[in-house]
Design a protein around this nucleic acid. Structure first.
Length: 589
RNA sequence: GGGGUCGUAGUUCAGUUGGUCAGAACGCCGGCCUGUCACGCCGGAGGUCGCGAGUUCGAGUCUCGUCGGCCCCGCCA
């Protein structure tokens, strides 16, 4: 190319008038007025209007007439002010334009399959197939640049805090617990497989044994599970681990990290310390372990109201140690029968048995299940709902307490969305703590780790592991932002005896434990310091900070919800030779 | 694994009970236009109605299957 840029398409202003400049960029659009020809030239820094006059040498003018969308061009010209009535206040460069003298077409372009203008939305399928075009759109460039800045702030912050960034292997060992592994067959060892890491968990713990003290990494992790708008099989974590710390040290460091992120990225101040909810409180009040605290609408426990009720379903749930919860929704006081049916439908789709309702008007409860209730029950409900003059009261019962709470949590969230109770400009961070260490898996007929098998129980709960393991709490903490889990971590077990006890509780045999985690157990015998850490969902955090709805909008080359890559067309079949080399044979079905 | 929803021109969509329903806008192509910036005006081209079966005299429309996008449940230590 002859004409190399002197300036970007986003930087020229009124005080550049008179300068001779060269711009390089893409044709964003053109307006041919018959004589004068305007072209918007775009690069990642912005757009600048360039002007071709009919008085130009014939071949320059004729070439300019041939320019079309997404042609790549270089122009040389003079910055001049626009006539006052032709200034464009919507464009940072709108004071000026470049009067072209020379034009070089660096490349032509086929007509793009969709328009790249910001206000035109192509289907996501098309955007993913032509991702290189989609990524030319300013909004996508802003998202990826914000992601970059988040990464830089992260490196700066943790480096300043004395953390060391250390890379860990991608070709590693399959582990029995947790998500399904992404597997890589070994060519040199037929019949054996590497697994891509679900997280660098064991490596970072071993780095603590090695004395690195404070480790972090911005790292890809892999989990072969089904996708969601905030989940991909490959995703990025900010992973970190600290030695000689307890929960408070980790949480305090993370709060300061978040403070810096919000200040530098969004110019917002957040207040520390973040509120903390125990798992139990979160479930009881919000029906989830990751509550969105931007709105109230908390669950009221009404189980005891119905112990003697004539409404038999509720009475039996109340007497079977189940849970009955109520949502008092003043904003929905005028809900129609149809709208309430819709909520009932929603609950049933989620696997619930349905939702009962009442309408509170002053002291009276009407409609719904009111005819089954006694004066004593009304009196108790009046007391529990005394803060609400009029409200729709939704009641949900289930013999399984957590199921009832979870369904109420979904209902709470749906109501908040439907009723517009959520302020999208707010960011509320909170911790969820005191998680149960274990949960019983009916499928596997054993206890499984709720977090992971290296999470330390609360020290005072260690004795519970023998008789009532389900009651033991974990030294774990999740960081919640607006109803999203953005980080989760724990203080780890650092003593071999306790780790072995955990494996026993999880019914992982000593042989299995040795085979799967022997290296970690062995490392723990050589002076493992007390340690703990946390990992952030980096994509999810970038998504929330960008204000976009899907993780795909902050990942350059994401997968679809069926885990396909539409641009490069992965996954794909491999050749017979490749299979043979790996010692693999495809099963025919 | 399950549920919901969508698939019609290059794109975004409309298309009624199965019967001139192959349509609009944008884009594209041609022409006109010297201050536009979502330029304007005139004209034109452009369709395997995702794919495959079936029902029917007749299917974009109904049924079944299948592929794909999105959302949700399960799953995601």
């Amino acid at each position: 190319m002859k004409l190399k840029r002197t300036n970007t398409c986003g930087e020229l202003r009124g005080n550049d008038v008179g300068k001779q400049v060269v711009l390089n960029g893409w044709v964003d659009g053109w307006r041919d007025l018959g004589g004068v020809l305007f072209i918007d030239l775009r690069d990642r820094y912005g757009k600048t209007q360039i002007v071709f006059s009919p008085e130009l040498p014939r071949e320059v003018y004729e070439t300019a007439k041939k320019l079309r969308s997404e042609f790549v061009v270089a122009v040389k010209g003079v910055v001049r002010p626009r006539p006052p009535e032709a200034k464009n206040p919507n464009l940072p460069t709108g004071e000026i334009e470049v009067a072209v003298e020379e034009l070089e077409i660096l490349n032509s372009s086929k007509t793009p399959p969709f328009e790249l203008k910001e206000f035109v939305e192509a289907s996501e399928e098309l955007r993913l197939r032509y991702r290189y075009l989609d990524l030319r759109r300013p909004v996508m460039q802003r998202n990826l640049i914000l992601r970059h800045q988040l990464a830089q702030i992260t490196r700066e912050f943790f480096t300043a805090e004395g953390f060391v960034e250390i890379e860990t292997p991608f070709l590693t060992k399959s582990t029995p617990e947790g998500a399904r592994d992404c597997l890589v067959p070994s060519r040199l060892h037929h019949g054996k497989f590497y697994a891509l890491p679900q997280s660098p968990q064991t490596y970072k713990q071993i780095l603590m044994v090695s004395g690195f003290d404070r480790y972090f990494q911005i790292v890809k992790c892999f989990r072969d599970e089904d996708l969601r708008r905030d989940r991909q099989p490959e995703f990025t974590q900010v992973d970190l681990e600290m030695s000689f710390v307890d929960e408070e040290d980790v949480m305090d460091t993370m709060e300061r990290y978040m403070e810096v992120v919000f200040r530098k990225l969004l110019n917002r101040n957040i207040t520390r310390p973040f509120p903390r909810l125990t798992y139990q409180e979160a479930m009881e009040k919000y029906g989830t372990d990751k509550p969105d605290l931007r709105y109230g609408l908390t669950i009221t426990d009404v189980t005891e109201v119905f112990r003697e009720s004539d409404f038999k379903i509720f009475r039996s749930v109340a007497n079977e140690q189940g849970f009955i919860g109520a949502l008092f929704v003043p904003e929905a006081a005028a809900y129609s029968r149809k709208q309430i049916d819709g909520l009932n439908q929603y609950v049933m789709e989620l696997g619930g048995k349905g939702v009962a309702h009442l309408k509170k008007q002053g002291r009276e409860f009407t409609t719904g299940i009111s005819k089954f209730l006694s004066e004593r029950e009304f009196a108790r409900l009046r007391e529990l709902g005394k803060d609400f003059d009029s409200a729709l009261v939704l009641l949900l019962a289930d013999a399984e307490t957590e199921k009832a709470q979870t369904l109420l949590g979904y209902l709470r969230q749906k109501l908040a969305e439907d009723l517009g109770l959520i302020d999208p400009s707010q960011f509320i961070l909170s911790w969820t703590v005191d998680f149960p260490l274990l949960e019983y898996s009916a499928e596997e007929q054993r206890y499984v780790a709720r977090h992971h098998p290296f999470t330390s129980p609360k020290l005072e709960d260690i004795p519970l592991l023998d008789q009532h393991p389900e009651r033991a709490l974990a030294r774990a903490y999740d960081l919640i932002l607006n109803g999203n889990e953005i980080a989760g971590g724990s203080i780890r077990i650092h003593q071999r005896e306790l780790q072995e006890k955990m494996f026993r509780v999880l019914q992982i045999s000593p042989e299995d434990a040795r085979q799967k985690f022997g290296f970690l157990l062995e490392a723990f015998e050589y002076g493992a310091p007390p340690h703990g850490g946390i990992a952030f969902g980096f994509d999810r955090l970038a998504m929330l900070l960008s204000g976009v709805e899907s993780i795909r909008d902050v990942i350059a080359f994401p997968k679809t919800t069926s885990a396909l890559a539409l641009m490069e067309n992965a996954p794909s079949e491999i050749s017979e030779e490749q299979l043979k080399e790996l010692g693999l044979e495809l099963r025919k079905n």
